[in-house]
């Protein structure tokens, strides 16, 4: 019975309903000294000031700075991706309709001439490019009478060096045409569809046959490549053309001219011969 009463009173005490609580309250409500209050509150204010200096007020500069940092980081990332990506430099040279009509039937020589003549200018532009851009896939696209063909600009210096030799010779037009024809031919034979300097060098050093032809370039029409398709089966004529180009490149213009005459005599129906005759060679 006494235990039950104790439990009841203890439960009341826990609930805050007990005489003991009143007795405890009667002990007094002493407070710390005022000096202590001042000291602690001053310390609290100092600590809050430090917090504000370190972190700023709530909703202050912290959020804008975080946002700015995020934007900056994102921008840098985008820029970095942009720099690392291949840069394509494309220029379209379009021959006017007037030229088109007057040069009907001579569109391919015009095309090659345009291509060959544009190479020095493209080479100059390349010098102004960054090195990493030069190493990337940069395509020079030349459009003649609605048809387009492409050459990698990084291969332009080699072609220009051939032209440079050719321009000093008396057979400048023929040299231009041969070079352009040869560039186009190698372009179609390359697996990647690109004209490569290494390929040219290899072909000059070796008599090995060129790799098998791929399907014609997607930018070339059937008619465009008919003459080149014929060349595929004429390895000897190819070798001769390669040799003529090599001679022009090395500056042996007289010998190149002699070989060119031989070429014309042996292969009168070769597209290059036909084109050269059209130009009055």
């Amino acid at each position: 019975m006494t235990d039950q009463r104790d439990d009841k009173e203890f439960a009341a005490f826990l609930a805050g309903e007990s005489e003991l609580a009143d007795r405890y309250q009667a002990l007094g409500s002493e407070q710390p000294p005022v000096e202590l209050d001042e000291h602690i509150l001053a310390a609290a204010r100092d600590a809050a000031k430090v917090h504000r200096l370190e972190f700023g007020p709530p909703g202050g500069w912290l959020k804008p700075v975080a946002l700015a940092a995020t934007v900056l980081l994102s921008f840098s990332l985008v820029m970095k991706i942009g720099v690392d990506s291949p840069v394509r430099y494309e220029q379209v040279v379009t021959v006017s309709k007037e030229s088109d009509s007057t040069l009907e039937g001579q569109s391919e020589p015009v095309f090659y001439e345009q291509l060959a003549r544009s190479l020095p200018q493209r080479t100059l532009e390349m010098k102004n490019m960054r090195e990493e851009q030069q190493s990337e896939q940069v395509i020079e696209e030349v459009t003649v009478t609605g048809r387009s063909r492409s050459i990698e600009l990084k291969d332009a210096p080699m072609a220009v060096s051939i032209l440079g030799s050719a321009e000093q010779s008396i057979d400048q037009d023929a040299a231009l045409l041969i070079v352009a024809e040869y560039v186009a031919m190698l372009k179609t034979k390359s697996d990647s569809g690109r004209f490569r300097l290494q390929e040219m060098e290899r072909s000059n050093e070796s008599t090995a046959k060129e790799p098998a032809l791929t399907a014609s370039s997607p930018v070339a029409s059937k008619k465009d490549w008919e003459s080149i398709d014929k060349l595929q089966t004429e390895d000897d004529s190819e070798s001769m053309l390669r040799e003529i180009v090599r001679l022009y490149t090395s500056g042996s213009n007289n010998e190149a001219g002699t070989r060119l005459d031989e070429f014309l005599a042996h292969y009168p129906d070769h597209p290059v011969s036909v084109k050269l005759r059209r130009r009055g060679y």
């Binding site: 509150l41 609290a44 204010r45 809050a48 917090h51 504000r52 972190f55 007020p57 709530p58």
Partner: peptide
């Protein structure tokens, strides 16, 4: 107060 409001303290 942790966030800098001294009045709360």
């Amino acid at each position: 107060y942790r966030d800098g409001e001294v009045q709360a303290f």
